[in-house]
Design a binder for these strands. Structure first.
Lengths: 196, 196
DNA sequence: TTAACTTATCAACATATGTAAATGAATTCC
DNA sequence: GGAATTCATTTACATATGTTGATAAGTTAA
């Protein structure tokens, strides 16, 4: 079986984790999707651009980061297989994103056209349910706990949280990207690891 | 005119900032609202409880904070006149809140029953629009920029952001609440103020 | 394979911030 | 009005983290 087919099967399985997806819903959904391959280090989208699609990761790894004016980057989330990287905010408000997405490995994705998805979702009850469950689980709750985790913990505790949350990614990610996620320098992360 | 009436007029004006509110919408909306007075230092709701209403502040000041296990509190947002304090997350997901709300002054609010509001909103186009605009402006965008502000800036820069965003509140808030909002101790805030 | 580059670790020093305790000003309470 | 409490500031010291530069291991490219 080719990657394209396998990717679509994986996508349907992921949707089904949230709510049941009938064959007819799936047929309609597939027509607004496009399989795509992006090479390591390329950007799925850049700060300042208004994205027109979600992505679904079949294979690979993507980081989401913001930038300040001085050339520093700050990692916010990592997305691996089965996740939907993207700026929900930029999509919902059709405004330029304040975030960028970069592939950290050669990555296979399925692009889901955002406008077509909205149209389809608004007249399909299964997709409406998916949308609600997905938003609640992956955005509202995740954002709230990440914020609290960041505010309440020191860097060592945040590192332990990171290992807990991203155990399967700790060796796919370079140290300096982890450090940036934790809000510290690679030097400091090195010290923290030594102290544990 | 009594406070109750003035509060309801203010509430209608606030709704109208987001979208137009017809008389019939307003009549229906008013029936799910209740005027209430809360004294300084009392809690609108506590961590662990599932809130059943939004509030609207007609007069007064409320802080939203989280707690860790060691008795420390962390301020997240301040709400003054015209704002809707509450944990959107807890309401949307009907889950126990991980946040508390405390009145920092004697405060006059209007409580809006959440379940009744959902019902009304889902069959009223004006309220649906209000809901979307309010969510986008006050939750998605605000949360995203607050997170970036916190991650990218040092404490001095965050203090300047705070003054900018909350200029009208800087002298209604005690230093130690501002310090907690900035993620530093009152001692450090004192030093920062001296250095500016 | 060698050379060039990237990455992780470490050391030395600088800076930001926390902690604890003291002081004085402001506020609250009887 | 005076006593008690709360709050902001300051000092001295401790700790966490940043910065810079060195080194060595690992990776990539010629």
């Amino acid at each position: 079986m080719r990657d394209t087919e396998k990717a679509f099967i994986a996508l349907r399985n992921t949707l089904s984790l949230y709510t049941s997806i009938s064959d007819s819903t799936w047929q309609a959904f597939m027509t607004i999707c496009k399989f795509k391959s992006v090479t390591k280090h390329s950007l799925l989208y850049k700060i300042g651009y208004t994205p027109s699609s979600y992505s679904y990761i079949y294979k690979g790894l993507v980081r989401c980061f913001s930038c300040d004016g001085k050339g520093n980057e700050y990692n916010k989330v990592f997305f691996d297989e089965g996740k939907f990287p993207g700026s929900m905010t930029a999509l919902l408000t059709s405004s330029p994103s304040i975030l960028s997405l970069e592939a950290l490995e050669d990555t296979l994705i399925i692009e889901i056209n955002f406008i077509a998805y909205r149209k389809l979702m608004l007249k399909n009850d299964e997709l409406k349910l998916f949308q609600i469950y997905y938003l609640e689980k992956n955005w509202l709750l995740a954002k709230e706990s990440r914020e609290i985790e960041f505010v309440q913990n020191d860097a060592t505790a945040r590192y332990l949280c990171f290992i807990d949350e991203y155990s399967q990614l700790t060796d796919r990610l370079p140290q300096y990207h982890i450090a940036s996620y934790l809000g510290i320098t690679p030097t400091q992360l090195s010290r923290i690891k030594k102290n544990i």
